[in-house]
Amino acid sequence: MTEMTDVSPPRGRTALRPWMLVLPALLFLAGFFVAPLIDNGARSFLGEEGGFTLARYWQLLSDRFYLGVIFETVALSAGVTLISALIGYPVAYFLVRKAGKWSGLVIFLLIAPLLTSIIMRTFGWQVLFARRGLVNNLLVDQIGLLDRPLRLLNTPEIAIAALVHVLVPFMVLSIASVLQGVDRRLEESAQMLGAGRVRTFFEVTLPLSLDGVGTGAILVFMIANGSFVTLVLLGGGLQTLPLLIYQQFNTTRDFGMASAMSTILLVIALVCLWLQLRLVRRQGG
């Protein structure tokens, strides 16, 4: 009776102890997710000749170069998040309020890009903005606006656009799911009481949907913070923590330093996760 099969239902005979069903997953993550992260954190405090050291963190948090990289990581993620919110909100509004029978198509178009590989999208940006790409082709040959192709690739702008492209669907879906729950009668009441459409939007609709913006913002910020494929291929001179970890691993091979940078990235992620949980709890979800 002490033996437990993985497939027994949640409320079997009490001797089977249903809570044991979570053990395989729990132990697996403890062994292959938490343990590596703790090991990684420990390595960042391990001195060259053994012993405990804070030297790497001291360097990361005092050196102008590293501070710049940390700042750029956070600023890039924040920028991408802000742009995604500004672009995503109108699309979410359209999806919930205006699309009507087209909403299925809009959702399909939003989800379809999520099925493409990150490599494919990066390649797409290269095709569009290469020296002989579509954009230069249009500007130079077709319209004749310029007499020489522009250098468009490897600029921060393209890297940011590519990141927004990857992340904005998450923002739209987060906002749309909250906007869907906003009671339209509140807006109608505001209008009946004499508020114009603009005022109704800014004083009723927008505040009521801010939770969706918040959820989406944390999600986008979190993913942007860890992304590096886009920056490796479209970089544009941007230096972020993930990119630096990648370089440390590849060329410098200073693993202790890479561990310390990973830990900082992890702490940022944990703060985001904490904010996310707080927000979800407030929504009562």
Partner: peptide, 27 residues
Amino acid sequence: AVMTFLLSPLSMPMIVIGFAGLFFLSW
């Protein structure tokens, strides 16, 4: 809380999961 934990790998930077995993699994 366990549910949150099981979902938490989603929120961690993948590059950190990979980098940390390599050293731990080598060990």
